[in-house]
Amino acid sequence: MRLVLERVGHAFLGRAVLEDFDLSLAAGEVVALLGPSGCGKTTVLQIAAGLLDPLRGRVQRHYRRHAVVFQEPRLLPWFTAHDNIAYGLRAAGVARAERAAIVAQRAQDVGLSLHDLDKYPAELSGGMRQRVAVARALAVRPDMVYFDEPFTAVDVGLKRILQDLVIEAAAREQFSALFVTHDLWEAVRVAHRLLLLPRRADGPVVARAIAGEPGRRRERDIFALVEAWSADPAFRELFDGRESVH
């Protein structure tokens, strides 16, 4: 197991967000974490990535290096796309000369042209910025990647392309991933299995396996599965459109 969360609990200002939450992620496995807005998905991700210390429970990480792709691109506005992609490498102490080659390779992986690398984030479109953020994460050769609703802000056509990019990279480089999303279709496309967080901290977590390998599933099957689960009472909270109140 690359990542194990055991009986993790957390509360903000006394309001419980998570209770007794368990999660384990095997090598090369992509797990989608679903749930209505405000149910604590980002909190789980931050705890797993060590950005937030949980109040209760245990987190075990058995991997060399992780990377996080946030909901917003979180690029440094004063750095070019090239320097933004290189940021994780710089933090890891990779020499400048080596960085350039890795950046060029990763830019190509996510479909950025060499010409785009000299641009500042303000000169890039929203989709391109998120590509830069994905390239920055992949550049450090992580064996664990955390995605926090990374493609919420891009339009449907681009979303599919970016998802395929992630699916391809995960298969190629065998990293594990925790993919947070509130989009059932996205979860069914990118993940091996999914977890549905309840709105209330003490509610039941729904776990479902998704047949087939990400990237190998037929669009028809994906569509049928999304249809079936949309009608499933266990997934009701995902579609009732209410915000969580704890």
Binding site: A49, F70, R74, Y87, A91
Partner: peptide, 16 residues
């Protein structure tokens, strides 16, 4: 702070 969290997620030190 969001950029700071990003940098910390890559293990960026105080000085960087």
């Amino acid at each position: 702070r969001a950029l700071d969290a990003m940098a910390r997620s890559f293990g960026g030190g105080m000085w960087l």
